[in-house]
């Protein structure tokens, strides 16, 4: 079975890039991708992560105060 992924949605590109930076600094494996069609998109970019890292991703965004529109499993 292939690995489960999630994406973080953001309101602005600036926040998306900030989110990527913060997560990478924590050593999390993330990647900015075009927002998947099935998710109502706020901004054209979403941050993909392995779903098993969801708690770490959530925590590090929260600690850095990066505004976002939630984590979504894809």
């Amino acid at each position: 079975m292939s690995e489960a992924y999630g994406v973080v949605l953001f309101f602005t590109t600036s926040s998306a890039i900030r989110g990527e930076k913060v997560a990478k600094r924590q050593g999390l494996r993330v990647k900015l991708i075009p927002t998947p069609r099935q998710l109502s998109s706020d901004c054209g970019m979403a941050l993909r992560f392995a779903w098993r890292d969801a708690d770490d991703v959530r925590r590090c965004l929260e600690e850095a105060g990066v505004e976002n529109d939630g984590l979504h499993r894809i």
Binding site: T13, S14, A16, I17, L32, P34, G44, M45
Partner: peptide, 21 residues
């Protein structure tokens, strides 16, 4: 184009702008 798409060049442009910010 910074932030108009999720492809890699757009992401790179978005990063350049964000770093400037």
């Amino acid at each position: 184009n910074p932030g108009r798409s999720g492809h890699r060049l757009s992401v790179a442009a978005g990063r350049a702008v964000y770093e400037a910010r």
